[in-house]
Simulated scan of single mutants.
Amino acid sequence: MSLSLRNAGWRVGGKPIVHGATLAFEPGQVTAIVGPNGAGKSTLLRLASGLLPATSGAVWLGNAPLTSFSPAQLAACRAMLTQDCALRARFTLRELVAMGGQVSAPFMGHSARWALAGLLLERVGLAAFAERDVMDLSGGERQRAHLARVLMQLEAPVHGTDQPPGFLLLDEPISAQDLSRQHLVLDLARAHARCGGGVGMVMHDLNWAAACADHIVVVHEGGIDAQGPPEQVLTSALVSRVFGVEEGRVHMHGGTGKPYVLPHDMICQ
């Protein structure tokens, strides 16, 4: 079952923010959405999640439009980590994470939900802070706490079964992380895909995107400029045209065959 946008778009006051977007997030696959600032990447992901209603085209989950699912059904099939996870009440980390399964898995007992919350906090490297107030954390720690919460939303409904989890949609999930935590978060995304879930991530770092994604979607001026495997999509010509970087700055890694960009090449001498 794929999560697909079919010629989808979103307008504000008659102005198209995203237009003609056709792509599919597939189970077992990590898709990275890249592009310049203001290109429409986050809007595209919010359309895929159903948080924004398509003003043209449609979004489908499997063989049915996203709009045909109830909130509880949708919560069990897809979860989104937004950039602005603001809290207006104070919770411990364990309480925050446990709440992720309340709508998607209302049948799950308190003790089972509590235990799974602890396991997910361990995965994101925050087990030692389980009883700490979320607002006492650093920005990067809070971002990972919310990642554990959205993982809870997808894993609670299938906990203890061999059913694959749903679609994990992440908007800039490594923006507040140091290098080792960036690696941790992206490893978690890859692990979700290995378990049969689908992953869609908005990313600014082309090197991390190329290294971890199976599929790259390049958004430019509200439309999809290119998509496919990283080694086919992230060429010097595309990076020059879309990002305004001088051609010849994309290299191919000898070990992985994946493209990468060296910032040293762009520093003025």
Rank of each mutant, 00 (worst) to 15 (best):
Leu3Arg: 00
Leu5Ala: 15
Asn7Gly: 14
Gly9Arg: 07
Gly9Asp: 06
Gly9Phe: 05
Arg11Ile: 00
Arg11Pro: 00
Pro16Asn: 14
Ala24Tyr: 02
Ala24Cys: 02
Pro27Val: 01
Pro27Leu: 03
Gly28Lys: 07
Gly28Ile: 05
Gly38Arg: 06
Gly38Val: 09
Gly40Asp: 11
Ser42Cys: 10
Thr43Lys: 07
Leu44Ile: 08
Leu44Gly: 05
Trp60Asn: 02
Gly62Ile: 05
Asn63Ser: 14
Thr67Arg: 15
Ser68Gly: 09
Ser68Cys: 10
Phe69Pro: 04
Phe69Gln: 05
Ser70Cys: 09
Pro71Arg: 10
Ala72Asn: 07
Ala72Leu: 12
Ala76Gln: 10
Gln83His: 04
Arg88Glu: 11
Arg88Met: 04
Arg88Ser: 10
Arg88Gln: 11
Arg88Trp: 05
Arg90Glu: 13
Arg90Pro: 00
Arg90Ile: 03
Leu96Ala: 07
Ala98Asn: 04
Phe107His: 13
Ser111His: 11
Arg113Ile: 05
Trp114Asn: 13
Ala115Gln: 14
Leu116Trp: 09
Leu119His: 14
Glu122Gly: 15
Leu126Gly: 01
Arg132Gly: 06
Val134Ser: 09
Asp136His: 12
Glu141Trp: 11
Glu141Ser: 02
Gln143Pro: 00
His146Gln: 13
Leu147Met: 14
Leu147Tyr: 04
Arg149Ala: 13
Arg149Asn: 09
Met152His: 07
Glu155Val: 01
Gly160Ser: 08
Thr161Ser: 15
Gln163Phe: 02
Pro165Tyr: 02
Phe167Asp: 01
Asp171Arg: 03
Asp171Trp: 01
Gln177Met: 13
Asp178Ser: 09
Arg181His: 15
Gln182Asp: 06
Val185Met: 12
Leu186Gly: 08
Ala193Gln: 04
Gly196Glu: 02
Gly197Ser: 10
Gly198Val: 01
Val199Cys: 04
Met201Ala: 15
His204Met: 06
Leu206Asp: 08
Ala211Val: 01
Cys212Thr: 14
Ala213Val: 04
Ala213Ile: 03
Ile216His: 01
Val219Met: 13
Glu221Pro: 00
Gly222Arg: 08
Gly222Trp: 04
Ile224Cys: 10
Ala226Pro: 04
Pro229Gln: 05
Pro230Gln: 04
Glu231Tyr: 02
Gln232Arg: 15
Val233Cys: 08
Thr235Trp: 03
Leu238His: 02
Val239Asp: 01
Ser240Phe: 00
Gly244Lys: 05
Glu247Pro: 15
Glu247His: 10
Glu247Gln: 14
Arg249Trp: 05
Arg249Asn: 11
Val250Thr: 05
Gly257Val: 06
Lys258Leu: 12
Tyr260Glu: 05
Leu262Asp: 13
Leu262Asn: 12
His264Lys: 08
Asp265Asn: 06
Met266Leu: 15
